[in-house]
Design a protein around this nucleic acid. Structure first.
Length: 713
DNA sequence: ACGAAATCTTTTTTT
DNA sequence: AAGATTTCGT
């Protein structure tokens, strides 16, 4: 490609057209560039027509980025390349093939909240309240779907009573989804797969549709995605997969690293190209990262090297507490921002859990540092936005029960539990869709006159909006209409700061709809809804914004920054150990996660840790083994003691006979005190029937009076 | 039927 | 420690 310089293996990966191709691309080895250049090359040489290329990326942003790069390389025709995430490609297939399945074109896509709401109802209807929580059921079902186990098969193979119960829930859940004309995330993949596999017609059509299929982040695909890839390929399709087994971090949601290892069997004759030169990081950062990941066994094994010199670029910093960690990090970031003239957006703070963002936000707010938090409280997960989306979904899909249940009595319109029940029973027996039933709600027995009338009003608003939508009104018009006709904003008319924020969010949402209409004039409301349901959390990362970046290590995949801080590099947190368990579920995956984080840094990398941390009661402890593993192979990792004056909070010593105060139980007498690690296990008599056994570390339990001190009885 | 208070759960990562 | 859910009082 003119003007683009590629090294030898990169060029090979870009230009090879002799068959399937697997690119094993180490961190920072320019794989995104290779993927974009390869796509551009296929088009530019006339080897493949652009519309016969399918490119699947891990996030929508990656797809947009690739599209942009291809467009800059080959201005003509890049627009017609089919690109997106696996999930969005599946949604596209399911829409196109709606007439061949039980679903309608405008099906709803349920996120994990919707999924849990639906499961809660399913579990209740089965009379299994209390035995199972919706999240337990949800993860069990998701596991099944990831392994391509359908409800019938799950029922057949269920052995224990627990499995039998789960299988029953699974069956009812699928039926409920179907009744609502909805798919959950996993269904998008599995139903598409079933469709192309079972219908020879459809399968053949798709396998003939593309001459070239490109897949990014192949190490994070699951069984369904791999099978789907196989199904989408005909005898003449060339597949190019790019990935790095060292960066596989989604095993917990069913990703199979083996996919990358068995690519040569799945796609016979595949050529393998390795990209081992890292262009991103200084060599000391890369050495530290490589040293860390070399502690994993079962790797493909590769030797990443960097031509960039570098000495002192990895720094380990101990801080006295989580808030000091935040203060130190932000002070250091400010120093770099000012002394090096580094834009804020080139500095990222990465952490294992979303909850860790808080300390940093507080500190940044206090220091007046602009920042963006990616992924924790997603815009579309905010209550008012979810409510509005629920209304919109009902316009597009009048069978969507989860959405109606969410908003039917919000704000209160005189409909209680039994009114709701009466309505949904009526709807089920009438065989008509929910919006149609709303329209004739006053005929339902067991509803108050007032409730019936207000439901009919809702029905009217929804069906009119639906009429407008199906005659081609843009999404933003429907949004405005719903907001106006339902008096949606009235709920937030109070003058508090929270209400104001909610109004702003709604306004922001309107703008998004408007932008969507401009970008996709013919998509309409259904297209808009589908787009926002499939947004990924890294999609709201603004690259250009001059704001410090806060996000989880998972979110950071595929990104790079000049300076990276990894916070909370402590045993128990990174590697993460679930409370109540003694070992990480998958130590090697945790190590890869750390590796991904470290390799995001171009110039400087900081690892920080604190001696203790309050984490929903349990405390993590001590610097992570990963620090030692990274530092092992070489010297330049520098460790500094905390400059903090304030030492770790002085330990209270408890003794039998102490009088203590508990914020909840009040005063009590210590009957028994044992050290349990850094904490104490206390048996305290608060004057209840039974003495309480408490663990310190949850809430402060000060000693009011020592044993034997004056006044002791 | 609704709001407030008490109780209970839930604690990783995300499409 | 925080949030969601249930129960209770009006």
């Amino acid at each position: 490609m003119g003007g683009v310089s590629l090294n030898e293996p990169q060029r090979e990966a870009v230009e090879y057209t002799g068959g399937h191709l697997l690119v094993l691309a180490g961190a920072g080895s320019g794989k995104t560039r290779v993927l974009a250049c390869r796509t551009a090359h296929l088009v530019a040489t006339g080897f493949v027509e652009p519309w016969r290329i399918l490119a699947m990326t891990f996030t929508n942003k990656a797809a947009a980025e690739m599209s942009r790069r291809v467009a800059s390389l080959v201005p003509a025709g890049s627009g017609r390349i089919r690109m997106g995430t696996f999930h969005s490609v599946c949604a596209w297939i399911l829409r196109r093939e709606a007439s061949r399945g039980w679903w309608a074109e405008d099906f709803s896509i349920y996120d994990s909240d919707d999924q849990k709401a639906l499961l809660r109802r399913v579990i209740r209807d089965l009379g299994e309240d209390g035995r199972v929580t919706p999240s337990q059921a949800s993860s069990w079902i998701s596991m099944c779907k990831n392994n391509l186990t359908g409800p019938e098969e799950a029922t057949d193979s269920a052995g224990t009573p627990w499995e039998k119960l789960m299988a029953r829930i699974y069956i009812s859940y699928q039926a409920a989804l179907r009744a609502s004309v909805a798919f959950d995330f996993d269904d998008l993949l599995t139903v598409s797969l079933d469709l192309v596999r079972q219908d020879i017609d459809i399968g053949g059509r798709y396998s003939r549709m593309f001459d070239a299929v490109l897949v990014d982040e192949y190490q994070d695909t699951n069984l369904a995605q791999r099978d789907l890839l196989l199904a989408l390929c005909g005898p003449d399709t060339q597949v190019c997969a790019v990935g790095d087994d060292d960066q596989s971090i989604y095993g917990w949601r069913g990703a199979r690293v083996e996919n990358i290892l068995r690519f040569p069997e799945d796609f016979p004759g595949a050529k393998i190209v390795r990209l081992e030169q890292n262009y991103r990081s200084t060599s000391s950062i890369l050495r530290a990262a490589s040293s860390l990941v070399s502690h994993n066994s079962g790797r493909h094994g590769k030797t990443l090297w960097s031509a960039r010199p570098g000495g002192d670029d990895v720094l380990v910093q101990a801080a006295g507490s989580a808030s000091e960690e935040a203060a130190w990090t932000l002070a250091e970031a400010t120093r770099l921002h000012e002394s090096r003239g580094l834009p804020w957006s080139e500095i990222a703070i990465l952490y294992r859990t979303n909850a860790q963002s808080r300390e940093f936000e507080t500190a940044a707010l206090g220091m007046n540092i602009p920042y963006q938090v990616i992924g924790s409280l997603r815009f579309y997960e905010r209550e008012e936005i979810k409510d509005l989306v629920a209304w919109l979904r009902l316009v597009a899909n009048p069978a969507d029960r989860v959405s109606l249940e969410r908003v039917i009595n919000k704000p209160p319109r005189g409909l209680g539990e039994r009114g709701k029940e009466a309505f949904f029973e009526y709807a089920a027996s009438s065989g008509r869709d929910l919006v149609a039933c709303l329209c004739s709600a006053s005929r339902i027995e067991g509803l108050s006159r007032k409730a019936g009338a207000s439901l009919e009003h809702l029905g009217g608003v929804l069906s009119e909006a639906a009429r407008a939508s199906s005659s081609g009104s843009p999404a933003s018009e429907i949004v405005d209409r719903i907001v106006a006709d339902l008096g949606f904003l009235e709920r937030f008319r109070g003058a508090g700061p929270e209400e104001e924020a909610r109004l702003e969010n709604v306004e922001e949402f309107r703008k998004t709809a408007l932008e969507h209409d401009t970008a996709h004039p013919s998509a309409g409301l259904p297209g808009f809804l589908q787009g926002i349901s499939l947004l990924t959390s890294s999609d709201d990362f603004e690259q250009g914004a001059d704001r410090l970046v806060l996000m989880t290590l998972h979110c950071a995949k595929g990104l790079e920054f000049s300076v990276v801080f990894i916070a909370g590099v402590e045993e128990g947190l990174l590697p993460f150990v679930r409370p109540g368990e003694t070992a990480p579920a998958d130590l090697e995956e945790e190590r890869r996660l750390m590796y991904v984080g470290m390799t995001r840094a171009r110039d400087l990398l900081y690892l920080t840790h604190v001696p203790w941390r309050q984490r929903h009661g349990t405390r993590a402890g001590g610097p992570s083994r990963f620090i030692a593993e990274a530092a092992e192979a070489f010297a330049p990792v520098r460790s500094e003691e905390s400059p903090s004056v304030e030492p770790v909070a002085p330990r209270t010593v408890y003794r039998r006979g102490n009088l203590v105060h508990h914020p909840r139980y009040g005063r009590g007498l210590v009957l028994h005190a044992v050290r349990r690690g850094p904490e104490w296990q206390l048996t305290v008599d608060f004057g209840f029937d039974e003495p309480k056994v408490l663990l310190t570390g949850y809430v402060p339990i000060p000693v009011i009076r020592e044993k034997g001190s004056p006044g002791d009885q």
